[in-house]
Design a protein around this nucleic acid. Structure first.
Lengths: 211, 211
DNA sequence: CCTTGTGAATACGTTCACAGCT
DNA sequence: AGCTGTGAACGTATTCACAAGG
């Protein structure tokens, strides 16, 4: 099920598109209607040629001698990223980090809704009020099917991560945002994005002390 | 202040070293003493040639026909990453995410200690018990100097992020783990690692629905 | 025979240089 | 004149193919 007509867009380009989108949103807030690749690239932290190259994967959107229409470019990227409609997500593993993400307001704003959280012990005492229901793992399959969920946030302990992942895949999840510090093994059609906080720190630490 | 003698190790290699280290730790737990590049690469989710190439940047550690000594390789990587000694870190911005990270036990295990947290309103009511002190921004400079802190975790709101960053840089911080969804502008000698949760989800979303 | 270590080949991503609009 | 759009050049990272060692 590959997209044949388009010349295979690099992962990194897609990633940067998300960044551009956020920069454009801030320009809009400041009532700026037009922006040059030079200016936008500056705030996005990339070179202007890179920005332009990134955009050419999707067509031509600028006016030579003038720049880009903020509103229009913003709409194009939103459309390409497919974040127009609210997308349902489940979260599995309601520990410290899971709880924090459940109360994190940053997701909805970007078009994602955590429709439910799951935990081995859903009744466990948690000292924080959240709006989403915390359900037992036995209800996972039903919710995923009913709400047509495709993505999951995984915040369980390392020991449980691979097993839970297998369950998620069986239930039809095809995208996993994994916070557990291990490499998940999944079928080819499933995509995993890892966020490993300890590694990020370790990485910083290496480079700042004269690697 | 560049390292001259070594042939410039790729960023991605350093990143993978952290992954190998975690895989080796699990092998050690299972009392496995020797591992082939093939086997280790498998659990680390990379190709065996890549693993071997990564290691050659640091020397020769394997025995042909046999593989690598788990303990020895583990020690080598730990040594290279410089995570032998406990490193002090400060956290700025004690909101939902900040609180969660303060109670996250994963850092210490990897050699990092959050020595203090800072917030504009340190006395604000927080429904969670944590062990680290929450201090006002006015004490930031003192703590950083006293404890010789070089790294900071930034979990403040977007609106405050750049200003807080400037302060951190002034205080001598040279490594920032940034959770605020914007591109921070810092002097060249300061390194920023970004963790943007909304972007990770957006990215997944793009690729799973037949990008 | 098995597995490492590595130069060479390849693939990929970025930057340059400049042609082409407005 | 100013800024976009893009093929070509460059640099970097990955993979191959195989020589070398236990």
């Amino acid at each position: 099920m590959k997209k044949p007509d388009r010349p295979e867009i690099p992962r990194k380009t897609i990633y940067r598109l998300s960044i551009y989108l956020r920069c454009l949103a801030r320009l809009k807030d400041n009532a700026i209607r037009t922006v040059s690749s030079e200016a936008l690239a500056k705030v996005a932290g990339v070179k202007s040629t890179q920005l332009r190259k990134d955009l050419t994967y999707f067509g031509q959107f600028g006016t030579r001698g003038l720049g880009y229409d903020v509103e229009q470019l913003s709409a194009m990227i939103t459309n390409e990223l497919g974040t127009k409609s609210l997308q349902p997500v489940v979260l599995v593993g309601v520990g410290n980090l899971g709880l924090a993400l459940l109360s994190y307001r940053g997701f909805e704003k970007e078009g994602f809704e955590i429709v439910a959280a799951f935990d081995l012990d859903p009744k466990r005492r948690r000292d924080k009020k959240i709006t989403q229901p915390i359900l037992g793992m036995d209800q996972l399959a039903d919710v995923i099917r009913e709400k047509n969920v495709k993505m999951a946030i995984l915040t369980v302990a390392v020991a449980a991560a691979q097993e839970v992942t297998n369950t998620l895949v069986t239930c039809g999840i095809t995208g996993i945002l994994n916070f557990a510090p291990l490499v998940l093994h999944v079928p080819e059609e499933v995509m995993v994005n890892n966020v490993n906080l300890a590694i990020e720190l370790e990485n910083l630490s290496y480079f700042i002390q004269g690697g």
